[in-house]
């Protein structure tokens, strides 16, 4: 049995929770294996359904030594038994078999938690797929997607695409590929707008931020978007209340270093810093009025008002009116 010289690594560890990226990593491992042996066979199995004898069977070399890719999914649920079985195989791997272990990085039992470190030590090829949460990461993901599809995108285009498609990576990825195909390579804001309208993600906080900034048109627009995509009224009302009371508390505390105020007010420094910027437009009487509006809308969205949509909209208008009160 002679292994081909170009064979990729026989052990992969895919670490992280971002499904799309995990899927891609698995696919990449499979592709690498198929490059050396086009008939390589793919077997996917969840670790919770796997028993040590089953694993032994899966990873034992076959008579005709055809290639084999075994994907062990959800390895964070591994029991001690299975973890031991995997590690003992890794210590003595079979030829022509590629083992891909998919692990979220978490895990309950000690054996499951320790698995990634042990596999790393055994020389596994590690692909990190952490969840993408920060806007900047998401934007760079979009840029990479467009590049993969063979196109280019400008900054405004990226923002427009994320705004209108949302945060789901699969959707972003397929939208990016589609746009590159449709626009002939160069994607800009106009191209995005031609195919995508509306906003996919409007949170209560976005509404609240516009409202306390006194931007009437933008606030009303965001409220309507939030209603369109079905953000629960209670969340919008809570966000409004939170924004108003944050400003009121920071205003009451007076000027000061956000880092020092943080402990006193029980808020993170960035929130205080932001509120200190927003405080400028507000008078004390206006803030008091806005707090009453916030309390009222909180009752309204919980059944006191006949129409919660109207109640939220009116509250936004009233908060802006309170801000303009001098």
């Amino acid at each position: 049995m002679t292994a081909p010289a170009t064979r990729g690594p026989a052990l992969h560890l895919v670490l992280g929770e971002e499904e799309l990226l995990v899927e891609r990593a698995v696919r990449a491992a499979l592709d690498a294996a198929r490059r050396t042996d086009p008939s390589a066979d793919l077997t996917r199995v969840r670790v919770s359904e796997l028993t040590p004898p089953m694993l032994a069977e899966l990873v034992s070399p076959s008579l005709f030594s055809e290639g084999r890719v075994v994907v062990v999914e959800a390895a964070q649920e591994a029991s001690q038994e299975i973890a031991d079985a995997i590690l003992s195989y890794v210590a003595d791997p079979a030829d022509g078999v590629v083992l891909v272990v998919v692990h979220t990085g978490g895990g309950r039992s000690k054996a499951a938690k320790g698995l990634p470190a042990a596999l790393r030590k055994a020389g596994a090829e590690v692909t990190e797929c952490p969840k993408i949460t920060k806007p900047a990461e998401r934007e760079s993901f979009v840029r990479n997607e467009v590049r993969r599809a063979g196109g280019r995108i400008d900054a405004a285009g990226v923002v427009a695409l994320v705004d209108s498609v949302g945060t789901d990576l699969r959707e972003l990825s397929s939208a990016a590929a589609q746009l590159v195909a449709d626009s002939g390579g160069t994607v800009d804001e106009e191209a995005v707008r031609r195919y995508h309208r509306g906003r996919a993600d409007v949170s209560g906080f976005a509404v609240a931020e516009k409202a306390v900034a006194g931007d009437r048109a933008a606030a009303l627009e965001t409220v309507r978007w939030a209603q369109q995509i079905g953000v629960p009224h209670v969340l919008v009302a809570d966000a409004l209340a939170d924004a108003v009371r944050t400003i009121a508390r920071v205003a009451a505390a007076g000027r000061g270093n956000p880092n020092q105020l943080a402990g006193e007010l029980g808020m993170p420094p960035w929130k205080i810093r932001k509120a200190q910027g927003q405080v400028r437009g507000w008078s004390t009487a206006g803030l008091a009025e806005a707090m009453r509006v916030a309390a009222r809308v909180n009752a309204d969205v919980k059944g006191a008002a006949a129409d919660a949509d109207y109640a939220v909209e009116r509250a936004v208008l009233d908060i802006i009116a309170a801000r303009e009160r001098r």
Binding site: D238, A288, A299
Partner: peptide, 22 residues
């Protein structure tokens, strides 16, 4: 009344105390 209507106590009470001061 607001607390009876299930308003978050903190929001209702803060609005009240603000009015009490004013």
């Amino acid at each position: 009344e607001a607390i009876g209507l299930n308003v978050k106590p903190r929001i209702a009470v803060e609005a009240m105390v603000t009015t009490l001061r004013e």
